[in-house]
Design a protein around this nucleic acid. Structure first.
Lengths: 340, 340
DNA sequence: TTGTAGGCGTTATCAG
DNA sequence: CTGATAACGCCTACAA
């Protein structure tokens, strides 16, 4: 005996409630335009039957999905978690559902994910950073899919951006580092290819170095994928060099934590023998010992502003355009003056 | 002048390639059943036109979406990140897309998310833990949506589960703690209502306490939401009590890190004056100083096994049923013998 | 305020 | 191997 599965549909609700399918549809989508008594009756049978509208059908008929997609480089560490949470909360308030997927920092995968999300009917997209194949921007324009860029502020980009000036923020931190007396600076940077945040942050450091009359060529830069272990390895590599730096500036907190761990395993006192800085101010930064000096980024604010902006774009409300958010130096124990 | 957006559809591809829509569809879905020359021709125009199939339409016609949904309690901390990443990688291999949403540990939201994912045509669902409104299980059965439970092992549940025995694992850890000589044990537990993992872990501690002839009633238990700050506050509360425990066992690593932080801020030496244990062995556990003694959970294995099982269920391959995975005590610096 | 009916883009069945 | 054509479940003018 086969047990057939019966999923109630609009017709069923209509029949049971004794109205037309159009009315049921209206009850669900534009309750205002339905007589209160009808509405009650219909909603009750919807409840009774456990009816849920079929998403695919709805998208096809309505040509919008009330869905917004986000492609983030990774879910593995906390860099994007906070912002995304706020993003999702705000979207929920506006009646949108969030679809998240991760690209593992690989441009090809990102491209694929974008297509997938668009195919699924995403009404708009949230992207991280702006450095990507121009083809993608063209694709989005052609399909008329609104999108914005977060985690970076680029006023003159194809897309509006909501974020902060990575270069300037890192420059200010480097400035501070130099003020403290550091001259031998090493950098552990994220992979720059395809990652504008990593690039800008490195440039920010160079800016500060130049402004202070130091030699950019003396900067030791190691480029590596994000990850605690990569941070460890990178510092290990740096320490094998002939002159030991007095400070290591890292492209983000995850790398910095790795560097910190390696320094401690190598028996270096932080910050006396080696100072370490990060970027992002994720929760981790305040937890390690010594706590990490880093750049604080307003994750939640960024997330919710992005959500508002995207929802507005979808609904045809004129967006407020790009928004630059403030970052703040977060000075903590991992940065000190060099001890000679 | 209005710029009309033209999204190529199957018809367009068919027309340009000079074949029927059916053939184009076949090229995309079952390339084997198409003459190679036709296939090449079609794929080329697909490429040229930048055609992407419309997901909603596809779902409606095919009655399956090759999509699997996962509802996790939170994205904010790393507890689920690893496992989910593995889950997604395995699904990808099998040709499925993952849809993630988070319930913020709220049963009502979880219920809503489940309905949403089902409405979107998810072919199957991954749920965390088994303690939820039975109505949900009935709903899934009615709609014939395969689902499994992860992060817990419960052989006799409605759904197959892939996970570990939280109770036994925590019991073993508590056993170890007691062996080291601890008698005054405090517990910082996650909120138990609606969270079977939290419940089982607490019970596991009680088991060990009883087995060793200690008094369960002497156990100080504080229940709190997950979160580092909550862990801090919980320990603060515990320390105001008349007798200070020699060890605090926490429901997970996040709480434990919070407790650790508070202990350090309060000037307590860990583990000499106070030992601390966690659960999950997230990356964070190995990073704090001292490193956290905790229970190692095979996140990635759990994720990929869950993916395999779910994909099998969707494809009608007989599932291998519930799978119990092994956990392992991860002894590190935060646990020591009580110093009197 | 409510009902009727056409169409949204694909897949799958069934002939050819 | 390929081509018509009927669903799929819902929304939305248009009409009443």
């Amino acid at each position: 005996m086969q047990k057939r599965v019966i999923v109630p549909k609009l017709d069923d609700v209509a029949r049971v409630a004794g109205v037309s399918t159009a009315t049921v549809s209206r009850c669900l989508n534009t309750p205002d335009r339905v007589a209160k008594t009808t509405l009650d009756k219909v909603m009750k049978t919807v409840e009774e039957l456990g009816y849920t509208p079929h998403f695919g059908a709805r998208v096809m008929a309505a040509k919008r999905s009330s869905t917004i997609g986000a492609i983030i480089p990774t879910m593995e560490n906390a860099i994007f978690a906070r912002g995304l949470q706020a993003f999702q909360e705000e979207l929920h308030k506006r009646g949108y559902t969030l679809l998240v997927s991760s690209s593992a920092y690989q441009p090809e995968i990102e491209k694929e994910q974008i297509r997938t999300l668009v195919a699924r009917g995403a009404d708009a997209l949230l992207l991280i950073g702006y450095d990507r194949d121009p083809e993608i921007y063209e694709y989005l324009r052609k399909r008329n899919v609104p999108a914005i860029v977060a985690w970076a502020y680029v006023p003159d980009n194809d897309l509006p951006s909501i974020g902060f000036d990575n270069r300037n923020a890192m420059c200010r931190l480097a400035q501070k580092v130099i003020e403290l007396g550091h001259k031998d600076i090493a950098v552990i940077s994220g992979v720059i290819e395809g990652n504008d945040r990593a690039y800008s942050r490195l440039e920010g450091i160079k800016d500060a170095v130049r402004q202070n009359g130091l030699d950019v060529d003396r900067l030791k830069v190691v480029e590596t994928d994000y990850g605690i272990e990569n941070g460890e390895r990178a510092l290990e590599q740096i320490l094998t060099g002939s002159t030991r730096p007095t400070v290591v500036m890292c492209g983000n907190d995850v790398l910095a934590v790795g560097a910190l761990r390696h320094a401690q395993n190598a028996g270096l006192r932080v910050p006396d023998e080696l100072s370490i800085t990060g970027f992002d101010d994720i929760e981790l930064a305040g937890i390690v010992t010594p706590a990490l000096t880093t750049v604080h980024v307003p994750h939640r604010e960024m997330g919710s502003k992005a959500a508002t902006e995207l929802a507005n774009l979808v609904e045809g409300i004129t967006g407020s355009g790009s928004v630059e958010l403030e970052t703040k130096l977060q000075l903590r124990g991992s940065l000190g003056s060099p001890v000679r």
